[in-house]
Amino acid sequence: MVTKTEETQLNNLENQVDNGGGGAWEYLTLLRKLKLRRSDKALKHGLSILNNPKLRSTLGPDEWTLYEQVAVAAMDCQHLDVAKDCTKALRKRFPESKRVGRLEAMLLEAKGSWELAEKAYTSLLEDSPLDQAIHKRRVAMAKAQGNISGAIEWLNKYLEIFMADHDAWRELAEIYVSLQMYKQAAFCYEELILSQPTVPLYHLAYADVLYTIGGLENLQTAKKYYASTIDLTGGKNTRALFGVCLCTSAIAQLVKGKSKEEKEGSQVQSLAAKVLEKEYKQKAPNKLPQLTTALKSLTLAS
């Protein structure tokens, strides 16, 4: 999870590293800690450390972590020769390691030799059938080949064993959303909210899915979840603010005529609209007229 403070810290560090201000190792450590995918930068700065024997020797045992990070980054950037060299160095150091075995299989994946990679993963799983990372790689491989239904099948099998893995639940939810299977996606997000109730982004994603499904009941629930996102973020999530406004106007259209309990809702959306206007005035004054017309079209302008 990336918090606001960490995001600022990361951006500062990235700026500093890109302008040659040093701190490459700290930057790479932060990338690993926050699990971010900035492969081009990881590759560039990681290689500059690895190619400098003096810098490399100051890292101590962390050197090998860096080799792994650079290898994966190189695969992501299709610099397969670099990835191969890194993997070779790791294999030389750890001849028996499963983790390096996984890296080698990933290299096969990056090359596009799916059958060989599949074989490698199968043999690794025979040795340690409960290795979560390898199970996940198989899902990713199915997805990479365009076999989405296969990926879903693998992922469901995986989640039957490792139910507490929220990353996998999120992946499943995202796959379902990409296939427009919103009911199933909603179930996954419910699971995520249950396991980590304080993460506002899950509430937001759940509300998005419910709003997309539509229908009065779903819209009302979606509005509640947008409201809880606003609650958890202190009103600093613009998407949730817009969500509340859209939900309110959609509900109003659905219940037109049979008016009941409308007054309660109107307060939430007018407050959200006010906050939106304030934010736009502060951060993007030239877009303010656009916002006001948009809100007016939702009959929400204050």
Partner: peptide, 28 residues
């Protein structure tokens, strides 16, 4: 929960499910 230290602004990229056939293949 809404202070800068605790407010989560983005989720980590799901690196365990990273796939390699994307546009970087065409634009190295």
């Amino acid at each position: 929960p809404d202070s800068d230290e605790n407010r989560i602004v983005s989720l980590p990229d799901n690196l365990d499910f990273m796939i390699f056939n994307h546009r970087r293949k065409v634009f190295p």
